[in-house]
């Protein structure tokens, strides 16, 4: 995102807004991650407790998703930067 069109007061405000949004986005990521991993890993309801198999699956799911998410974010940023550059050359 290009913030150069904004005044410094506006930029300061944007930073605050962005921080709040990041907090919100993180919580959203977190709750969707729990849902995603629970859906993939937990399918036995003969007991309330997590089996060791379910525990392992949940941990792997959470860790793997964070790695996936980092990679996807890096690619997204690259592609986005490339496309903005192309648009400015037009």
């Amino acid at each position: 995102m290009d913030m150069s069109g904004l005044s410094s007061a506006e930029q300061a405000q944007m930073v605050q807004i962005i921080e709040k949004k990041q907090m919100r986005d993180f919580m959203n990521l977190y709750s969707s991650l729990v849902e995603r991993c629970f859906t993939s890993c937990c399918n036995d309801f003969t007991s309330r407790a997590l089996s060791s198999k379910e525990e392992g699956c949940l941990k792997n799911c959470a860790e793997k998703f964070m790695k996936y998410s980092e990679r996807a974010g890096a690619r997204f940023a690259e592609e986005n930067a490339e496309q903005m550059q192309k648009q400015q050359q037009k």
Binding site: M1, M3, G5, L6, S7, A9, E10, Q13, M14, I17, I18, K21
Partner: peptide, 16 residues
């Protein structure tokens, strides 16, 4: 905020 341009902040926010 005195002197802040809400329209522009809104637009940037919207894009985000």
């Amino acid at each position: 905020g005195g002197g802040l341009n809400n329209e522009r902040i809104e637009a940037a926010m919207h894009e985000m």
